[in-house]
């Protein structure tokens, strides 16, 4: 546990190709805002003799967000960049909420969204939210480009499918049907064991039919329970085809709980954790459904803004 960082070599490439090359040659990780890397280096949880910075590569801070074309965020886009954006708030609410609730707020000014997703830290919020939005990552490496679904991205605690030298250039969340809504929530708890992640977070996306009477699509994600957020298809199946209502959301939450293993061996801790988890999931789904029902983005509005932008 250090007070300062141990020395490392540092490269500041100015193109993606150069960055990839440097990272491969030195078997070095990339660094963007450093919000994950710097604290872990200081605590000596990680040791890296060399880092390759993405900070000076132009173009990576572009982003575009629109209900019709989806949300595309470059690797350097920081979490707070999303906050003032109207479409982020309305149509990609889960990720917007997760960014808004980043605690402490200063971190949102420093840490990139892509960096958050790439960290593979089990209790981070943005992966949970982004998974509910069906996010995919655009990866560039020496061998060329590939697209990886966030659901397939994590392989183990702190580990992703990326190999050294592969860089995520952007994250993309596809546009969704008009009558859709998403939401994100989290609760802090106190840790009981080393594997207990001290926090629970959940995100959901609900799509209604044209009459807004039945659920036609749903995504239910719970994070912070294991090394990565998971989608719970059994819970989604409970929702699809049904009219949204409170009891249904509770059933969906129960379907998630049925798949969870306890974390500690303290019975009372587990019981309360399950109870809190149930409320969290139920309320998250309920909020997503309510947003789906009350969405307001008539095509005209959207078109107007599209014109303004161009």
């Amino acid at each position: 546990m250090g007070r300062v960082l141990l020395p490392f070599e540092f490269y500041e490439p100015e193109s993606v190709a150069e960055a990839i090359d440097l990272a491969r040659r030195h078997s070095a990780p990339f660094i963007m805002g450093g919000c994950t890397l710097v604290p872990s280096l200081r605590r000596r949880q990680r040791r890296e003799p060399c880092l390759v910075s993405l900070a000076r590569i132009p173009g990576l801070d572009d982003f575009s967000i629109h209900p019709r074309t989806g949300m595309r965020l470059g690797a350097k886009v920081v979490a707070s960049a999303l906050l003032p954006h109207i479409w982020a708030g309305k149509r990609f609410a889960a990720l917007h909420e997760a960014c808004e609730q980043l605690y402490p707020p200063h971190i949102g000014n420093m840490g990139s969204i892509v960096g958050n997703l790439c960290s593979g830290v089990p209790y981070f919020d943005l992966p949970t939210a982004a998974m509910a939005l069906d996010a995919e990552l655009h990866v560039t490496g020496q061998g060329g480009d590939r697209v990886v679904k966030l659901e397939d991205f994590y392989t183990a605690k702190f580990q992703t499918v990326l190999s050294r030298g592969e860089v995520v250039t952007q994250v993309f969340c596809p546009p969704h049907k008009a009558d859709s809504g998403s939401s994100f929530k989290k609760i802090y708890r106190s840790r009981r064991t080393i594997d207990d992640l001290h926090k629970l977070n959940a995100a959901a996306m609900v799509t209604l039919d044209e009459d807004r009477a039945r659920i036609i699509d749903a995504r239910v994600v719970l994070g912070s329970w294991s090394f990565r957020p998971h989608r719970y298809r059994a819970a989604e199946a409970v929702l699809v085809g049904e009219a949204p209502n409170f009891d249904l959301f509770e059933q969906a939450a129960d379907a998630v709980l049925a798949e969870l293993d306890p974390v500690t061996d303290l019975a009372w801790v587990e019981k309360t954790r399950f109870a809190q988890c149930r409320v969290l999931l139920r309320d998250t789904i309920a909020q997503a459904a309510s947003r789906a029902k009350s969405r307001h983005d008539p095509f005209e509005d959207a078109a107007e803004i599209l014109e303004d932008a161009s």
Binding site: F10, E12, I31, G34, C35, V38, P39, R42, R43, S53, S80, P104, H106, I107, N109, M110
Partner: peptide, 24 residues
């Protein structure tokens, strides 16, 4: 560790935690 804000400075006008911001 970026947790408390005691080290807050403004960088291009926005508050950041200078304790986890690499000087480079």
């Amino acid at each position: 560790g970026g947790n408390c804000g005691a080290c807050t400075v403004l960088m291009d006008g926005v508050p950041v935690c200078s304790c986890i911001q690499l000087a480079v």
